[in-house]
Design a protein around this nucleic acid. Structure first.
Length: 505
RNA sequence: GGCCCGUUCGUAUAGAGGCCUAGGACGCCUCCCUUUCACGGAGGAAACACGGGUUCGAAUCCCGUACGGGCUACCA
């Protein structure tokens, strides 16, 4: 049987980076096994539904390069892939359980449920649950006569359908990542399967869809492991084989205190979403990895290494290489902290290893402007690709190659300026500007030669050049700067040396 | 509180009983290259949570403790 996995997010807002990692691992596992990666939209909570979230999910996966080949927005043999459009199916399935006595109607109102919880809390039970020990005291199909139940149903009394979980059993399953996991049915509550609004809960919809969509492996976050017991029970109740399970470790906050959440983005000054999300309020709007300046390959590489690694020293992996190396059973069990420094390093590595042509086209796509002249633009990129972590830093750092700076690092100037030397430097500059050179390294050779003729030391001239050309001490060699600036470079030096001598008087 | 899961340098990790004097990476520090920054190179500080077992031998297997995380909704 061929591998079929699904990524099944809820359209409740922007897709969190942890969700992207779940999608990635599903994608890698599918590709590795020549299987199918499916997108299913779990929109069973009408209260939390957010318009636009579904499109966001598709766009985000596309940007990351891990698009599904089947599912909502992609088609397939199991349409529809939106759970809200499969509502009838879930109800039909719940009825089967009802008829077999594996589920029951419950009519308890919210206040009755609250009452029950309060009562049990007073008895010293900290987290009361609707289970075998309390259900006979509640208003449901087990305590009411068949006639009473029918009457309530006929009168359109709001109801839910609950799974009847009986104590005394132990449920065991083998998780691909975690090994054997065991639950005692006495610990499990009578989970709601169908809500009062007629929608299924996650638990029912999930099992029904995974079964009918012929999902072979359920790869999801660790937050689901506790409900896996219910899921197994449900598969048993239906008489279906359950798929394989793999519960992924969570991505933790940078300080390790809990799982990463959307609010942590603002708190730690880090992106937690793949691409920006514009909610209705500023508090609900977030900058994404894309807008932060990350290249998708770097994000994927970084994410892949959160909780998994190939067991070799190689750290830079293309998507194809990840597919090749990926092994679900080598995924870690414990949560991995989000480390923005490592993410930055990945991004730098990707920039460093890309051609100027590639970087230029990416900059055009992201509307990062350098200069219109293609050759000049590529020269600048080649100079700066090893000096930035993000492409958007380039126009800032290389600004002096496009406009003459109007400030100067005065402390640095004071340190390097030798009064009285300026006529000689100007003379040297004039001489240098008249030489014929084809590139920076040739210019450098000529300059060093000429320096001796003029009796000047490199340290007396080049820092001043740097300050004159760029306004600061940092950057590529002055010869590389001059190669790009051409004649303008020399005249800028002479012009600014004049300014400097006024400044330092 | 209960249940489930986990724990190797600051971080992400290698490690499947002897190859471990615990390896490489990010970050940090020193040095080299150099007119500066960066890249690159050389080096450094830095970890098996603790306590018991099992074994000739434990980071690795078992038990306990501590600590951390997840779940504990008519949310997913």
């Amino acid at each position: 049987m061929s591998v079929r996995v699904r990524f099944a997010p809820s359209p409740t807002g922007a897709l969190h980076i942890g969700g992207v990692r779940t999608a990635l691992f599903n994608y890698l596992f599918a590709k590795k096994n020549s299987g199918t990666f499916i997108l299913r939209i779990e929109d069973t909570d009408q209260g939390r539904f957010v318009p636009g979230a579904e499109q966001y999910i598709q766009e985000a996966l596309k940007w990351c390069g891990i698009e599904p080949t089947e599912g909502q927005g992609y088609g397939g043999n199991f349409v529809p892939y939106r759970q809200s459009e499969r509502k009838d199916l879930y109800y039909q399935q719940a009825k089967i359980l009802l008829e077999e006595g594996k589920a029951y109607y419950a009519f308890d109102t919210e206040s009755e449920l609250e009452h029950m919880r309060d009562r049990l809390a007073n008895e010293g039970i900290p987290a009361p649950k609707y289970d075998a020990t309390v259900r006979m005291n509640m208003k449901n199909g087990l305590t009411l006569s068949i006639e009473e139940t029918q009457k309530l149903l006929a009168a359109d009394t709001p109801f839910v359908i609950r799974l009847k979980v009986d104590p005394g059993d132990s449920i065991q399953f083998t998780d691909i990542i975690r090994g054997d996991v065991v639950f005692d049915t006495a610990e499990l509550d009578d989970k709601v399967l169908i809500k009062a609004d007629g929608m299924p809960t996650y638990h029912l919809a999930n099992i029904v869809d995974d079964h009918f969509m012929e999902i072979t492996h359920v790869i999801r976050g660790e937050e689901w492991i506790s409900s896996a017991g219910h899921h197994i029970l449900l598969y048993k109740a239906f008489g279906w084989d359950h798929p394989e399970f793999a519960h992924l470790p969570l991505i933790m906050r940078p300080d390790g205190k809990g799982k990463l959440s959307k609010r942590d983005g603002a708190k730690f000054g880090i992106p937690v979403f793949p691409i920006s999300w514009n909610g209705e309020t500023p508090e609900d709007s977030f900058e994404g990895f894309r807008e932060y300046g990350f290249e998708p390959e770097a994000v994927i590489n970084f994410l892949a290494f959160l909780g998994w690694n190939p067991g070799t020293d190689q750290e830079i992996f293309s998507l194809e290489e990840l597919v090749d190396a990926f092994d679900l059973s080598k995924v870690h069990k414990s949560g991995a902290r989000f480390d923005i420094e490592k993410a930055r390093w990945y991004n730098q590595q990707y920039i460093l290893n890309m051609s100027a042509e590639e970087l230029e086209s990416r900059m055009v796509k992201s509307k990062i402007e350098l200069v219109s002249d293609k050759e000049k633009s590529r020269n600048i990129i080649n100079l700066y690709k090893e000096r930035v972590h993000f492409l958007k830093e380039m126009p800032l750092q290389a600004d002096y190659l496009m406009h003459e700076p109007n400030t100067v690092d005065e402390a640095a100037l004071k340190k390097h300026w030798k009064p009285g030397l300026e006529p000689k430097i100007v003379e040297f500059t004039n001489a240098l500007s008249e030489t014929n050179y084809v590139n920076a390294s040739e210019l450098e050779a000529i300059a060093k030669e000429k320096l001796k003729e003029f009796g000047l030391k490199p340290g007396e001239v080049f820092p001043i050049y740097r300050l004159a050309l760029a306004g600061g001490l940092q950057g590529p060699t002055v010869f590389e700067m001059l190669e790009i600036l051409g004649k303008e470079g020399f005249s800028r030096i002479i012009r600014r040396i004049e300014e400097f001598s006024n400044l330092t008087i």
